[in-house]
Design a protein around this nucleic acid. Structure first.
Lengths: 217, 217
DNA sequence: AGAAAAGGTTAAGTTTAGGTTAATTGATTA
DNA sequence: TAATCAATTAACCTAAACTTAACCTTTTCT
């Protein structure tokens, strides 16, 4: 498992490299587009994590180069939340997944796993917390072996909280990760979803730290 | 968490203030170098976001003043992309991070978070003092394995005191870190919260050094 | 000693975050 | 084109959290 991480912000690059290294991946890093292309052509990677906003050669350009040579290599794009058009463009160009900055390492890790699994049948993508099991690849949730059917939003909420288990996540943050709109607009809707979701899960699975946010476990 | 934002372009200044305010930081703003220094010396900040290109007193000059007084305070520098030399100079002067304009708020937020983690929070997110354990990620507090439910203000008070254990923190400072308003206005309220908080904690956990402030341990 | 200042407590009243329900609109598919 | 399920809207409820204000205690200073 050899990953290529293309990211120009040094601190983030290092953090990512360290993080994946810990998980036993082999990691190469590139700080600009040209370096990325060079590395791509001189090595064989199992997956690429690609920031869009790069010096020298734009991320989208890098993606195009990669795709000309290899149609199957999983590419996960990182990009600032605002650059939504890029997202669409990225998918057009053949990106396999997309993650908006800022993100949590756990989230990225989960997605990388999902991509690898899809292509290579490796890595487990299952989160287990108490009697709850989430298959993040299939986007399904089980409570002690019984599958629970969840709507997209409902699933998004639990998954996110589980990926960050132990942390109190502000409703605002939660919302902005799942809806891609401003929190105020959908706050009400969120509350309804949460309420329905909770009824399907074990009691007190999703807890609230008043004034701080929601958390699991 | 009290931030000082030094930025002379009003619209940006306001945007930043609003943004961080939403994330529950307490925010002060300065529009020129002199004001920045003044504020710096009359308050206690957890982090400074500093534009370099400032009227009256240059940003680099401000940084120097800050560093003469405080070597540890995290300072994040904003600057036009072209001023790359400034970046190097900034790091020489002891800036902790650097972000080129134009940037996306999410980016800035992520960096501020990273800095706060690195500098302020103890390596991992759990603080243990005697039989008291605080999980600063989940915003929860335990007294010998029993969870104690605290209000936001109550939590804010203990957390802050524990992050600065051993130091006597003036009530004024404590208040301004947790409320947004002037200390006088909410002094009474603070006393009530403190009183309630103490009842939930071990005897004499939060102590008072008459005339100097409150401290833990 | 007695007044002033700093700290601490109590019992109200008010405000808000969080939670629920039911009706409405929008998509999807049998 | 019904019928079903997902998502939203809006109204409503409640238990906390928060504030206010009055009063009490201890220290310290003249």
């Amino acid at each position: 498992m050899r990953l290529l991480i293309v990211e120009d912000e040094k601190p983030l690059q290092t953090a990512l490299a360290k993080g994946f290294h810990k998980l036993e991946y082999t990691v190469d890093t590139a700080s600009d587009g040209e370096e990325a292309v060079e590395l791509f052509f001189s090595n064989t990677y199992t997956l690429v994590v690609l920031d869009l906003n790069l010096p020298k050669l734009d991320g989208m350009e890098v993606l195009r180069e990669i795709r000309m040579d290899n149609k199957d290599l999983p590419v996960l794009i990182l990009s600032a939340r605002s650059e939504v058009e890029d997202k669409i463009a990225g998918f057009d160009e053949g990106a396999n997944d997309y993650l908006a900055k800022p993100f949590h390492f756990g989230e990225l890790e989960a997605r990388v796993r999902a991509l690898l699994r899809r292509n290579f049948k490796t890595a487990d993508t299952v989160i287990e917390i108490g009697e709850v099991r989430i298959d993040t690849a299939a986007k399904r949730l089980f409570v002690s072996a019984r599958e629970i059917s969840l709507s997209k939003k409902e699933y998004g909420i639990v998954e996110y909280l589980c990926l960050r288990r132990g942390e109190a996540v502000r409703p605002t943050e939660l919302i902005e990760h799942i809806w891609e709109s401003e929190a105020d607009d959908v706050f009400n809707s969120f509350k309804v979803h949460l309420s329905k979701l909770r009824k399907k899960l074990p009691d007190t699975f999703i807890r609230n730290a008043r004034g701080h946010g929601y958390y699991v476990e």
